[in-house]
Write a protein that binds this DNA or RNA. Structure first.
Lengths: 143, 143
DNA sequence: TTAAAACCTATGACCCACTCACAGGTCAAA
DNA sequence: TTTGACCTGTGAGTGGGTCATAGGTTTTAA
């Protein structure tokens, strides 16, 4: 298979195939005549695997590691379970952060309804923002 | 004020002060003797404003634009309200996406509880991932 | 007085997972 | 034979900083 055929078969763009090849996730052979890359069924399996893993939140370095384990005939499954639980925790933290941000934004919006627009006077830039108190900084600290 | 003093006053790192200066959000004067940058109360105001705006989800280009408006004595408030509502919509979309991801992850985890770890055999890499169906891809699987 | 600590400067790489652009080479059908 | 679809490698861009390098300056303490 050439680049575009593999890309079509896995429903990704040719650019993604080339990128994954550069990143070492796929290992095509070369035609010395024209320098084209040729992919086989194993590459298709790897690519499909990688895309599924990406959908599940795995990073490319993690996927590379998983594929590497499999290449050495070690079961990557324990690692998969392990990394996956950490990822889930991270995703839940990100959701919580975004929801905090959303709360801050909604409360700011409602506070702004009664505030007039002002013109910058050398002391304030935009009262809407400057006179807004972050509810998070009162209670506890981020980072 | 020198870099670190301003950074301390606004509770950011000196690197952030330098970065914002490079980005044109702060406009310190220069001491020609030692080439040091000196910041005044106006820069502190701008920096604090920028950090608050960041907390509210504004991007640096947006903040630069807001500051630019204020520099020309136009009220940036209408723009602030406008951009802010778009940002809120984006944040809500991001939350929805992450929650979808979380749903996928949780359902995968529970399906994995009964699955054994396998050793790669040239046909599969890790059943956990390969035999997982994305609920979003095949949405009519429940009945 | 001098040496070390703490500050300052500019620049560029790095993070993430692609995506796009550029410039040129190859190959199929019309 | 020309068009157009494909291929190649490389490098830049995304966002918001953070960190490293290498060197210059100022402050503090022995």
């Amino acid at each position: 298979m050439k680049v575009k055929e593999l890309a079509t078969a896995a429903d990704v763009t040719p650019d993604t195939v080339r990128f994954y090849t550069r990143e070492g996730l796929l290992r095509p052979s070369r035609n010395p005549d024209n320098n084209y890359q040729y992919y086989d069924a194993e590459d298709l399996r790897r690519l499909r695997f990688a895309r599924k893993a990406r959908q599940l939140g795995f990073s490319l370095p993690e996927i590379r590691q998983i594929l590497g384990q499999a290449d050495e005939h070690h079961s990557p499954c324990p690692m998969v379970r392990d990394v996956f639980e950490q990822r889930l925790a991270e995703v839940e933290r990100e959701i919580a952060e975004l929801q905090q941000l959303r709360t801050r934004m909604v409360s700011a919006l409602s506070a702004w309804q009664e505030m007039p627009d002002g013109t910058p006077d050398g002391h304030t830039i935009c009262r809407l923002i400057e006179h807004w108190d972050d509810p998070a900084t009162c209670s506890d600290k981020e980072h």
